[in-house]
Nucleic acid binder design. Structure first.
Length: 432
DNA sequence: TCTGGGGTCCTAGGACCC
DNA sequence: TCTGGGGTCCTAGGACCC
């Protein structure tokens, strides 16, 4: 059996833990740069605020109905997530727990009776008491059915946040009441196609033959079909080492100057290299992409991207940043106004066994020194604060008025940011 | 004026091998 | 006139997830 534990409106709930006056009120959390709505309280959903809507489009509604706005505060959310996940890990042991995202985890048990309704209710209460996070739980013999169960747990108060699909009668009833668009693995594109064929509920889908589903919706659709039938065929949602690491940002304004783009891209590349080192990985592919503003059709449009293969896989600051610069120079077109850029490193493997190349232009000793220097930078930055030491090319010019040098994180808009209550001593909650 | 970020998997098509 | 069959690997693009 699988149990999925899903935090309710995760980011909004994190904000509410430290600002209890937000409870019972419409609240939304925005994406980076305060662009789009990425989390909504139930009260905000009830006002018709849709996921992903640009905030400026709903400002009149926000003002009229007193909707509370928060910028995203990932430091806070990640810390709250870790607290919930550690409770779940204790619950079933590391081996039976798979963290699927910042707000969800699958627990598994060999026995069909391990996850009872009483067990679920007790766990919901424990997590609420220990962390303040409201969660819902769905239990079923497959992950897709467990996801369906959480939908019912969230939408029907009678379940007390815990829903089990653990026998044939319940399975049929659940599928008949579940819209096809709510099925895990069916996106907006799939919904259109399913409806075209007269499939409106999960149940409708299961009534078609396997061959028909395979021919129209490929193996992905077939897998969903099997999972809905109760056949467990997604063996794991975790793949071990990540295959790609990406750092990308939209700019507050637009950037057309190559030098300025270089500054951003080298920061993104540096960030990727740091993530690689943190995971004891190396990468052999460095991709850079730059994009103009897709919403501004009056301006010249250009999406550029290219990839460079490294002779020897690396994670040191110097080679990753240098590779990214080279790629940027290859794809840059002058006269375009860029809105977004990013760096993706791929071909990731363990740093414990790096394949040497016969024709490498650098000696192993030179590589060791670059790795060692990157480690020293990490140590200093960990102790003294991020970006204490960085490459010259990453540096933004000093602001003439304040005399301060900003970094690329400062350039994001976050007008409505709450404090880092759990991770910064200066931000501790004050109780009067 | 203003429109997120970080991932995975699958498929089709091309280049290549014998 | 007529042009096979069976593979692998890589890449780009699309769909999906949160």
């Amino acid at each position: 059996m699988y149990a999925i534990i899903d935090c309710d409106n995760c980011f909004v709930s994190c904000e509410r833990v430290f600002q209890p006056d937000l409870k019972g009120r419409p609240v939304v959390v925005l994406s980076n740069n305060d662009g789009c709505v990425v989390a909504r309280s139930n009260e905000a959903k009830a006002l018709g605020i849709k996921m992903g809507v640009p905030i400026y489009q709903i400002m009149p509604l926000v003002k009229e109905r007193g909707v509370e706005i928060r910028s995203s505060n990932y430091t806070l959310y990640a810390d709250m997530s870790n607290r919930v996940m550690s409770i779940l890990r204790d619950e079933v042991g590391q081996a039976q727990m798979e963290q699927y995202s910042i707000d969800e985890a699958f627990l598994s048990a060999p026995s069909a009776t391990a996850f009872t309704h009483d067990w679920g209710v007790a766990l919901v209460r424990k997590i609420g008491k220990w962390t303040g996070m409201p969660v819902s739980i769905g239990v079923a013999p497959t992950r897709t059915l467990a996801k369906a169960a959480t939908w019912f747990a969230k939408h029907y108060a009678g379940y007390h946040k815990v829903c089990l699909i653990d026998d044939e009668t319940k399975r049929q009833l659940a599928l008949q009441h579940l819209d096809i668009g709510e099925v895990w693995g069916v996106g907006w594109r799939g919904v259109e196609q399913y409806r075209y064929y007269g499939i409106n509920t999960a149940w409708d889908l299961t009534q078609r033959s396997a061959a028909w589903v395979r021919s129209k919706f490929t193996v992905t659709g077939l897998r969903t079909w099997q999972e809905l039938q109760g056949e467990d065929c997604i063996d794991t949602v975790l793949t071990g080492r990540r295959q790609t690491i990406c750092t990308s940002r939209s700019f507050d304004g637009m950037v057309s100057d190559l030098g300025q783009l270089e500054m951003y891209v080298s920061n993104f590349a540096s960030h990727c290299a740091q993530k690689l080192r943190r995971e004891h990985s190396v990468a052999s592919l460095v991709t850079v992409f730059i994009q103009t503003n897709h919403h501004r059709l009056d301006l010249r449009q250009y999406d550029g991207s290219a990839t460079l293969s490294l002779i020897t896989a690396a994670s040191n600051e110097f080679e990753i940043v240098n590779a990214a610069r080279q790629v940027l120079h290859r794809i840059y077109r002058s006269g375009c106004q860029y809105k977004r850029a990013g760096v993706i490193v791929g071909g990731i493997s363990s740093n414990a066994a790096v394949q040497q190349d016969l024709f490498d232009t650098l000696s192993p000793e030179q590589r060791r020194r670059m790795d060692r220097l990157s480690e020293v930078m990490d140590t200093v930055n960990r102790r003294m604060g991020a970006d204490t030491i960085q490459l010259g090319i990453q540096q933004f010019p000093v602001d003439k008025e304040t005399g301060k040098r900003s970094n690329f994180k400062d350039l994001l808009r976050h007008q409505y940011r709450s404090k880092c209550y759990t991770s910064n001593l200066d931000d501790l909650l004050e109780v009067q």
